[in-house]
């Protein structure tokens, strides 16, 4: 799509049409906080399949992007914790879905590397554990680090508090979590927000995600969690 300084505002249904079968998607959120519920719900309705879901967790069976898993739309999950969604466990055990588990700090650093132009990161996390298996270990000044490779996605679905028409974003409470990092690491970034303000109504001092990273704005809907988070 053509980039524009003034970001297009569209319905969630329209926005998620940019996600096609086989796409990789990042979805913000930690537990039930900071999930772009309205976008995820539209993606569930769309039924788009064969997706690679990159998200900290898979929420719950009936909450947020947990429903994408239950609905059989996910080919592979990359996450740090999936213990709260029984369907993720079941589909993985039945070999119907791939599962890549990553320590949470490593997960966000891999996304940051993907969005910040780095070839990877060196982390001590997981050294000497099964997580090290199959990965390159590099010694720096006598200390061992695992080389972790960048993560990027075709589309990031993120959740913020308020946007202005340029797409500048501010966050609220514990809804921030992985959303700012994901906004840097996808070819297309769709942000779900509580409100879209005129230029100048967000002070540049307060902006966390600059609008140049954001492609599409969607207003949040009124489902249970969308309206309460």
């Amino acid at each position: 799509m053509p980039t524009s300084v003034i970001k297009p505002v569209m319905s969630a249904e329209e926005a998620v049409k940019r996600i096609t079968a086989g796409s990789s998607i990042m979805v913000g959120g930690f537990n039930y906080g900071g999930i772009p519920y309205t976008l995820v719900e539209a993606l569930v309705v769309s039924g788009t399949k064969d997706l690679w879901l990159i998200s900290n967790d898979t929420a719950y069976d009936d909450v947020g992007h947990g429903r994408l898993v239950v609905n059989g739309q996910i080919r592979k999950v990359t996450a740090s914790h999936v213990g709260l969604n029984k369907s993720t466990q079941r589909l993985f055990n039945e070999k119907k879905m791939e599962l890549e588990l990553v320590p949470q700090g490593t997960f966000v650093e891999r996304i940051r590397a993907g969005g910040f132009g780095l070839g990877g990161v060196l982390t001590p996390t997981g050294v000497g554990t099964v997580h090290e298996e199959g990965k390159q270990v590099i010694e720096v000044e006598g200390k061992r680090y695992i080389l972790e490779l960048p993560l990027r996605a075709d589309v990031a679905l993120i959740r913020a508090y308020r946007a202005d028409r340029y797409g500048n974003l501010v966050y609220f409470g514990t809804n921030r979590n992985f959303n700012p990092a994901m906004a840097t690491a996808a070819d297309l970034v769709i942000a779900e927000v509580d409100a879209i303000l005129e230029i100048g109504q967000i002070n540049p001092n307060d902006v966390v995600t600059p609008g140049i990273l954001v492609d599409i704005l969607v207003l949040k809907g009124d489902s249970y969690y969308a309206s309460r988070t």
């Binding site: 967790d57 914790h81 588990l101 700090g105 996390t125």
Partner: peptide, 15 residues
């Protein structure tokens, strides 16, 4: 048994 994932535990014990 089920594989819940390590979440933040590996980072916490490392750092």
């Amino acid at each position: 048994k089920m594989v819940p994932g390590m979440g933040g535990a590996m980072d916490l014990v490392t750092g």
